[in-house]
């Protein structure tokens, strides 16, 4: 199995490397390819089973979009072929139709998903997130810290139970494309979601340190469900 991590030297903001670490620990025999922004992505000429793109600064968003635009067709083919994609934080915006910059300049996205995004550098939105992954009936816990705000007509990935704003849904699910604005080590924070994702990859064994992960998860779920917990 080949797992490609796209541009980890710049798409690595705020603990998302935890997801890569977790993949490496659970798939020690997989072939990991870490492609820098200066290189041609491995997926262009090879089969890749899992493609990961983490959050980046809004300054790098444009750079990454420009880089991936050349491979739009190939990326579309991969989505249609059920390659697993995980895009976290603002990475999801790149796959959409349009991104409006703070100066109102409009960038065309990869146009692979019905997502419209707006960048507001002066407006940082931060919230805890409690949601539900309906497909498996698991609760999802995590964080949002955004300057890029996303609207989508695609099938959502999670239902929102609680966050600071009044959103009803979170993220995008299209075939095996999993996109979420949650950032941080989402797989480590959500062991049941990780198990689901890994099962698609054909891995149905116990997660590494599963007991400890579930302990931490259960504690966090209780905290997030507590009415007194501020979502600030």
């Amino acid at each position: 199995m080949t797992i490609e991590i796209l541009f980890p030297e710049i798409c690595d903001l705020y603990g998302d490397r935890g997801n890569v670490l977790f993949l490496e620990k659970n798939f020690p025999h997989a072939h990991f390819v870490k492609t820098t922004i200066l290189e041609e992505p491995y997926f262009v000429t090879h089969d890749v089973q899992f493609l990961y793109l983490g959050p980046m600064s809004e300054y790098n968003l444009e750079k990454v979009l420009k880089k991936l635009k050349i491979y739009q067709k190939r990326l579309n083919e991969m989505i249609q072929n059920d390659t697993i994609f995980l895009a976290t934080g603002n990475a999801m915006a790149i796959f959409g139709t349009t991104i409006v910059k703070e100066n109102k300049e409009i960038l065309s996205g990869l146009n692979l998903l019905q997502i419209h995004s707006e960048i507001h550098l002066s407006k940082r939105y931060h919230s805890l997130f409690l949601g539900k992954f309906s497909e498996e009936n698991h609760l999802i816990v995590g964080y949002k810290s955004q300057n890029t705000f996303i609207e989508t007509k695609e099938t959502p990935l999670f239902e929102t139970i609680k966050e600071k704003s009044n959103t009803k849904v979170e993220g995008v699910r299209k075939r095996n494309f999993f996109g979420t604005t949650l950032l941080g080590p989402i797989l480590i924070l959500n062991p049941y979601f990780a198990k689901y994702l890994f099962s698609i990859m054909g891995y149905n064994q116990e997660l590494i340190f599963e007991k400890q992960l579930v302990n931490a998860y259960n504690e966090r779920v209780l905290e997030y469900q507590n009415q007194d917990t501020a979502y600030e």
Partner: peptide, 12 residues
């Protein structure tokens, strides 16, 4: 005390 601290930074 009031919320639940984010631990994303542990992984950086």
């Amino acid at each position: 005390r009031y919320s639940s601290e984010t631990v994303a930074w542990y992984y950086d």
